[in-house]
Amino acid sequence: MKFKLLFVICLALFPAMKAQKTKSLFNGKNLKGWQVLIGDAEFKVEDGVIVGVSKATRQSTFLATKKEYTNFILEYEMMVGEGLNTGVQIRTQFDDVKKHLFGLQVEGDDSERGWTGGIYDQGRKGWRYPLTYNPNAKNVFRKGQWNRIKVVAYENHIATWLNGVHVADLLEETVETGFIALQVHSAGKDKEGVENKWRNMTITELNTAPDFSQTTAPTISYLTNKLTDAEKKDGWKLLWDGKTSQGWRGAKRDDFPEKGWSISDGILTVHASGGGESENGGDIVTTRPYKNFILELDFKFTKGANSGIKYFVDTDLNKAKGRPLDVSFKF
């Protein structure tokens, strides 16, 4: 049996996409429609190619479109300089006051790690789809050559392809709007002057859902308290519905505690008890028992907090107030 206690999870079924107009993001001549945000690395145009020149600095430089996009198919060719790390930002924003850029990035990676086509949340959450999720795609990247990238972003669903191979399949928790940007990553002195290159950049804005039925990469989801059709088929169940106390009760009572716990915005929270063991509402348990299972959940706690997940709980053996006898995984 499989079930999930999730504050972040999945979804995905889409009809076929209607024909929509494809536009070039780069005119092949100059950087009209683009602007440099933070950093001082050089971007230039040579022979119909955008060239980003690596500079020994601690700060990355980004060349961003002046227009923002939400749902689209983005295609481009990229040549990553030897030993460099780069990427293309999508749905990205820039805080001009804090000089802070944040948003999803489609990775370009010339290192032995080989995570090109993976998805990273720049300036915010870090890796969303590292290629540890799809290790077979690590060998698709062609070092020292042009590589073809395709990105499909529609609502919460984002998928990438590298040289025709499906690399990443991501379901994000939020739908964002933002610009496209090219990155020249911060680098050491040994990488000074090494170049990243981009060409044949096109975008097709979508007003209807594309067909994701041919995706082959493992799906990773960060949606809130939802299961994908694939997860349901595999036997996963939500252990908590994200809205009510249904399926849960106090460890020493037949109903849900009236105090000490709260449910809001898809998050189940236990409140401070002043350091007392199982005080202020006590522990909560599922209303039905489980024996053989895989349990997954997301958790977060404040500084100094002490909590855990208990399993194989017997609420009758321990007579102490609010706390059953159990085996537990401590946080």
Rank of each mutant, 00 (worst) to 15 (best):
T202S: 10
N163L: 13
Q214H: 12
G260L: 10
R199Q: 15
S186T: 07
V175D: 04
I220S: 04
E205G: 05
T215K: 14
V194G: 00
D229M: 10
S221N: 13
M201L: 15
F256T: 05
D265L: 08
T174D: 15
I220A: 05
T202P: 01
T174K: 15
G260Q: 04
E205W: 06
V175W: 11
L206Q: 02
S221G: 15
L170W: 11
K233R: 14
T204H: 01
D234S: 15
Q246T: 14
V165Y: 13
I203K: 08
V167G: 09
A217K: 06
G242S: 06
I263V: 06
D229N: 10
G247L: 11
T216R: 10
W248H: 02
L182I: 12
S262V: 04
N163E: 14
G260R: 08
L223W: 04
F256I: 05
K233V: 14
L239E: 06
W261E: 03
S213E: 10
E173L: 06
A209M: 07
K233L: 13
E258W: 12
Y222T: 07
N225T: 15
G188F: 12
W198D: 08
T215H: 13
T174I: 08
T204S: 02
A251I: 07
W240F: 04
T228W: 02
E205F: 05
I263Q: 01
W240G: 00
F256N: 01
W240Q: 01
G188Y: 12
A168I: 09
D211T: 11
P257I: 09
K191N: 13
E192P: 02
W261V: 00
K259D: 07
L206A: 05
Q183R: 14
A187F: 10
V165S: 12
A181V: 12
G188K: 13
N200L: 08
L170N: 05
G266L: 04
W261S: 02
V165D: 09
V175G: 00
E172Q: 10
R253W: 07
A168G: 11
L239K: 06
